[in-house]
Every structure is written in C-alpha cells, then in structure tokens.
Design a protein around this nucleic acid. Structure first.
Lengths: 189, 189
DNA sequence: ACGGACATGTAAGCAGTTACATGATTGC
DNA sequence: GCAATCATGTAACTGCTTACATGTCCGT
C-alpha cells in the first residue's frame, strides 16, 4: 500500500474552517495542529498550488498595495474529499520516539547520565503542560459554545494534557525505580 | 540545525547488547523497539555497510554451508558513539498523529462518523494493550533480575501501557462528551 | 514438491527538511 | 534606519519506503 501525502488533508481541513492565505494557514497551524501534526513551512505553497490545479480550492488575489496576498477558499469537491478522508479510520503513523529509544538502551550508560536524561524529559513535559494550559485559557475557553469546533479542539487539547500528566507520573516513578535499583551496573564510559 | 540519521544509533544500540546478523537485528527490532522506533527493513543492510566502513562495527562471515550470514560486533569507537548520543537530551521527533488531526476537524463530519472514528481508535488501543501485556508476560518477566536491560525494557513497556490506559480513558470520556453534545451541528455529507 | 522462514541485498521514487531568495509594511 | 513581521516561493538534499531480486535451508 502506498503511503500517500496527508498534508493535503491538513490544508483542506484548515481551509474548511474559513478562507485563508498560505501565510495564515501556516500561522494557524503553528499554534494549533502543530502540537500533533507538524508541517514544514516550505511544503505549504506547493501544496496550495497543487490543490488549486486539482480544483479542490480556489485562490483569489487580495493584495493590499504592492504586498501580494492570495486567499484560498475550499470548493465543494475539496470539502467532500476531506470529509471522506475524515470518516476513514486513522492509520498509525510511524513510531519515532527518540526518548524511549534512549531509555531502552539505558543499561549502556551510567546511573547519573540516565537520571539526567529523565529529568530533562520531565522538564520538557512540564513545559508542554504549561503551553497547553495557556492555550486552554487564552484560546479555547474564549470560544462561544455555539462554535462547532470548540468541542473538538477542547478534546484534542485534553488529549495532550492527559498524555502529559501520564508521562509525568511515569517519569517520576521511573526515576525512583532507577535510583532504588542498586544492582545497576555501570559500564566504562 | 541538520536533522541527522538516527537509525545508526538504533543499530549500534542493538549490537551493543550482543553481536548479531542484519536479519537478527531486524527480528529483534520487530518485537521490541518497533513499538516506539520503527525502521524499515531495507534501511538496515546499507546502514550496516556504512557503519562497518566507519569502523563502528566489524562484521565476520559465519556462513553455515551455502547460506551466507555476516555477524556484526560493535567496536570500542562504536560503543563510545552510542553512549555519547544516549547521554544527550532527547529531541522531539516530528509530531504526526493522524487520529488527532481527524478529531480536530471533527466538526466537518456528522456525529455518527466521528463516533465510529473514536470507537475504531478505542479498539486499536485495546489491542495494543493486549500486545504489551503479552510482551510483559512472555518476554520481560522471564529475564533474570541480574540482566541490566530488564529494568529499562520494563520501564519502556510500562510507558506504553500507561499511555494506552490514559488514551483509553480519554477516548471513553470523549465519546460521552460527543454524544451528550446536543448542540452538535451536522453538515451535509 | 512446496511453503515458510532464513538471509542479504538493490533501485526507483516520493516525502519532507533545510537553506536560500525576494520584497513590502509596520513599529520603534 | 533597522528589526520584526507579512508574504510567497524555489532548489538541493536527505531519508525512508516500496518494490524488486536472489538464493538457501527445513519441515511436512
């Protein structure tokens, strides 16, 4: 089975909300979907061009003065495509958790080093939690309940928060387990 | 900052445990690291060749009869390289969670479709939990406590299990929230 | 005799990232 | 005047996946 390009659905989904320019799509993604779906900046403009050629979106010039600006709107076929994709069950993306890979090889380094690794990860997670709490207060909470996106954005945010809490607890327990473990052998480093 | 190839560390880490052939590395990864670090089969043999050329591993022919078999052993410089990398804080891999992307756009499809999506995900998670429980009973539990890897493999496994539990709880709560939500608007599909 | 596991590879192509390139507007 | 932000793109490269290619050994 061929692994097809899913960036298109991210773009179509964002445009389904409201018409936006390439730059606005990037901005929107950076503060929302980027937490679970990262797109690199350079990929967006060629994608917009392609989607326009396919008739999934239509772009119109809305330049102010000499600064060019093209605003894209999703078409009916574009909306249908993204809706069709949304209804299909999500397939697992390739797992790539660098931290777990390092932990898995933890026996190759000494206790100090592995402990530092976990503590750095803990700091990162706590920072992530802060970000999520900030988004909750300053973004999601301000939407009116009538906004149909509010429910789903809130759920996605909840996912991030609970996963963080979970990882935090696990990290703390793991740190204890590692320091308690007196059998731990220390290879030459 | 250039994103460098991390497959090499996965291979070095596995070989640090004990000498293995390419095929054995693949087998080992398929039932262990694959849950958090996937490597495609085709990438392993060129990587072994490269690491050998760099002097990080040494391979020796151990063919039985006509079936060829090259077993690789990690060298001192290879071990040092992987130990050095392990001690560095893990950097975040690109986030790509297709399921969350779909949920985020949940307002674009009707309640039935979004509910089905979550239920499929729930089934997938429950299946994953089963796999982890199986690994725990049939693999990790059988190691002697003296094995220095046991602690870390157990922790990595615990990570997977707790994340699954967490996602499971969140999915169940989310399903309730979605069906309770009478304000949910249904676009034409 | 045949299927499945063992065993090692190559080639083509696509996806994604990094770096580069250009210029306008706004605020300090 | 300068930095930050707005705004859009291209080119080169790397990495990864898919598909292909080849042959052995073992059990039934």
């Amino acid at each position: 089975m061929k692994k097809l390009n899913k960036s298109r659905y991210a773009v179509l989904g964002v445009l389904a909300g409201k018409p936006r320019s390439g730059y606005e799509i990037l901005q929107f993604m950076r503060q929302s979907t980027a937490h679970f779906w990262q797109e690199s900046d350079a990929s967006i403009y060629p994608m917009l061009k392609q989607l326009e050629k396919e008739g999934k979106i239509t772009g119109q010039q809305e330049s102010q003065g000499k600064r060019e600006r093209r605003v894209f709107e999703i078409t009916q076929t574009g909306l249908e495509e993204v809706q069709h994709w949304l209804a299909l069950p999500a397939q697992q993306e390739t797992h790539r958790n660098e931290f777990l890979l390092k932990l898995f090889f933890g026996a190759l380094i000494n206790e100090n080093q592995i402990t530092t690794l976990l503590q750095k990860q803990l700091a990162k997670i706590e920072n992530e939690k802060k970000t999520y709490r900030h988004i909750e207060k300053s973004v999601v909470a301000k939407f009116p309940d009538s906004n149909p996106h509010k429910l789903f954005w809130g759920l996605a945010l909840q996912y991030g928060i609970t996963q963080c809490n979970c990882e935090e607890q696990w990290l703390k327990k793991s740190l204890e387990r590692i320091t308690d473990d007196t059998q731990h052998n220390i290879p030459a480093s």
